[in-house]
Nucleic acid binder design. Structure first.
Lengths: 118, 118
DNA sequence: CTAGAACCTGACATGGGTGTCAGAATCAAG
DNA sequence: CTTGATTCTGACACCCATGTCAGGTTCTAG
């Protein structure tokens, strides 16, 4: 599929998809004229990328991480190095802290919302 | 207490504390010479502000929200307007989506980490 | 062949909390 | 009074994913 369809199906802008490619996160074939041609599996990949961005990971971390994930029906094409494992473990801890933060903030909002309704 | 101590006790930079004041999030008395003097309750307030920032709320939303929260032992000094309640409800939904995202990303990380250990 | 839709690259802008620096004033201890 | 630590204001920079625009090329349906 081409970039417009991929954008539509993932909800991610074309601008961002091109940016992902430049960051080495998302590969694409090219038509003879130079237009990007994406495989079906790109949809899942883009969604995954978005989730990881939303989780606070930067492009370079995601770029290291993606090859170590299984994609579609195949297995992973790489295994994380010890250094990467350490980094990911740190990210994991940060995510846990963020979740805890979010839960507290959600409670705060609930309190204010409930007070206004009650 | 003064700004240095508040920064130390909350882990928030002096820069940010001054910024919070400019955004109307954090009030401070002034010494005759113009130095900020914070009440004890400021510590909790700053931590709360940080949590809300971490939850993705912007300064203006936090500024609207804070007066509707109970602070220390006292009750809230304001009640949320219907408009604010609607906005906060939307923020709450966004937070829920973010949490779901984080959980998925955490699972992704776990998968890669486990694969490298196994 | 042609028109219009879709795509290309490159460049500049944006947001918003935070870092940092400069130069001056204040505070507190000796 | 003096000195060093602390604080003040204001300005500029940064990050970094994303928006947007310009000018040109490719694709596809008629």
């Amino acid at each position: 599929m081409r970039i417009g369809e991929l954008a539509r199906r993932t909800g991610v802008s074309e601008r961002s998809l091109r940016y992902y490619e430049k960051q080495g996160l998302l590969a694409a074939e090219r038509t003879p004229g130079g237009h990007r041609e994406y495989a079906e599996v790109a949809v899942d990949r883009v969604i995954r990328i978005q989730e990881l961005y939303a989780a606070g990971l930067c492009s370079s971390k995601i770029a290291e991480l993606l090859p170590c994930m299984r994609e579609g029906d195949g297995g992973p094409s790489a295994v994380a190095t010890p250094k990467l494992v350490a980094e990911l473990t740190a990210e994991r801890a940060r995510i846990d802290r963020t979740i805890a933060d979010l839960l507290r903030s959600r409670d705060t909002l609930d309190e204010v919302i409930d007070a206004a309704r009650g």
